[in-house]
Simulated scan of single mutants.
Amino acid sequence: MALAVASAGFVPDRPDLGHRAEGLDLADPAFFADSLDPAAPRLLPPAAYRTLAFAELEDDAVWTRSWLAIGLGAEIPAPGDLLPFTAGHHGLHVQRAAEGGLVGRFNKAQHGGCRAVPLQCRTGTKTRCSFTACGYSRDGAVLPAGREGPTPAMHQYLGLRPERLLPVAARAWGPMVRISLDPEAAPAEAPPDGLVARSGETRRAEYAANWKLAAQALAEGERPEHAPDSLHLSGHLATGEVAAIAVHFPNLVLIEARGETCAVILQPTALGQTLLRIGLLGRDGAEQGDLEVAWTAWLAEIAARMAPAVAAQAALTRPEADRPLPTNAAGLWLQRCIAARVRARPAATDTQPLYATAQGRGC
């Protein structure tokens, strides 16, 4: 039996065995080739939006090798405050340090082998779990520190000795927080100048669309300009107002209009589902309008932009889906970035198990 096949139990990802699904080698450059033609941009084959094997490939090539946006610095203003974020299959958190800096760590629990929810763990869907904070559970809200430091609720993330947890690079990026699981990652691009969080609040909205479809829908625009890890476009809101759009690979979309910026952080919660963490930013020193009015307008704009992504996901999920669907400039750029990272990832050569019982070692 191939280990890449999803099962009800815990099956470890094995990059050395390759990433295959629906009769295709998902890591082969040929899998991407037809979708990267600028003369006829179209979506990747349906397997890229509906198979666990491609999600495993993205974990190996994208989520563990890129600078990820996870939230606003204003969400964790006080020492000890903790912001959870699941990156691919890895449960992480960032905590505000006593001196004001940021400390990133892997969560205490990473096993993902919970047998209480066998239809969710390791089948491409995050599960709501009140017990642990592993890489297969859905993140809760920000945890504020208590008067005497970490609260009991933080134990599932910190354990008894948080200084012994595997570290994660965490950086303030303007008003936002970005992390990288790759210790050799190059520095992230410089953030936009002058942006500040309008409040420490973020709101969440979830849509039935793969994260790649969500990103391209949110970044609908034209006249693209490329930077090393970002794409900049011009466009219009549903109301007709002019907007400037920036996509920072892989999971941050900034939409600037009406003198403010809506920051949308994308986080896959299932193969065909994406959670959007949304924050509102403004220009430092600029006068801002009513915050609740702004929220209402931006959430409506996001819903309008996400409608095509939801429709595309429904079409790609059908077993008979084989007709190539078109994509926009942002989708073409995103697919090129993913293909480049798949090509650049280190080859998996170590096939030995991380753990083995005495019986398994022949002792």
Score class of each variant (00 low, 15 high):
Thr151Trp: 00
Tyr157Arg: 01
Leu237Thr: 12
Ile302Glu: 00
Pro29Ile: 05
Tyr136Gln: 14
Leu233Thr: 02
Thr261Asp: 02
Trp67Cys: 01
Glu320Arg: 12
Ala30Val: 11
Ser66Glu: 06
Gln352Phe: 12
Asp60Phe: 09
Ala238Trp: 08
Pro224Thr: 09
Gly146Ala: 12
Val293Cys: 15
Val264Arg: 04
Asp13Ser: 11
Glu222Trp: 12
Ala27Leu: 09
Asp322His: 15
Leu181Ser: 06
Pro346Ser: 15
Val253Leu: 03
Val94Thr: 03
Leu271Phe: 03
Leu316Phe: 04
Arg204Asn: 13
Phe32Gly: 02
Asp322Cys: 15
Glu301Leu: 09
Glu201Arg: 14
Gly331Tyr: 01
Glu184Ile: 03
Ser199Met: 08
Ala78Lys: 13
Ala98Met: 10
Gln335Pro: 03
Asp16Met: 14
Arg50Cys: 05
Gly194Ser: 06
Leu44Glu: 02
Gly23Gln: 06
Arg122Gln: 11
Leu72Pro: 01
Phe32Gln: 02
Ala307Asn: 13
Ala197Gln: 04
Ala141Thr: 12
Gln273Phe: 05
Leu325Tyr: 05
Leu36Phe: 05
Gly289Ala: 10
Gln352Met: 11
Gly88Asn: 02
Leu72Gly: 01
Ala340Arg: 08
Ala109Asp: 06
Ala186Asp: 14
Asp13Trp: 08
Thr274Trp: 02
Gln273Trp: 13
Glu58Cys: 11
Pro308Asn: 07
Gln110Leu: 01
Gly174Cys: 03
Leu195Tyr: 03
Leu281Gln: 04
Ala330Trp: 00
Ala30Cys: 10
Ile265Arg: 05
Val11Phe: 12
Pro326Leu: 07
Pro152Thr: 04
Gln120Asn: 15
Thr125Asn: 10
Leu24Pro: 07
Thr123Val: 11
Ala330Gln: 01
Ala304Arg: 10
Gln335Asp: 11
Gly18Asp: 09
Asp25Leu: 07
Gly112Leu: 08
Ala270Met: 07
Glu301Pro: 04
Val62Gln: 02
Arg171Cys: 13
Gly174Ser: 05
Thr202Arg: 15
His111Phe: 14
Ser137Met: 05
Ala188Glu: 08
Pro45Lys: 06
Ala348Met: 09
Ala297Leu: 13
Asp81Ser: 00
Pro228Asn: 08
Ser35Thr: 08
Asp37Leu: 10
Val94Ile: 14
Asn251Trp: 03
Gln359Tyr: 13
Leu82His: 01
Gly285Val: 07
Glu189Gln: 12
Ala39Gln: 15
Leu165Ile: 10
Leu231Trp: 01
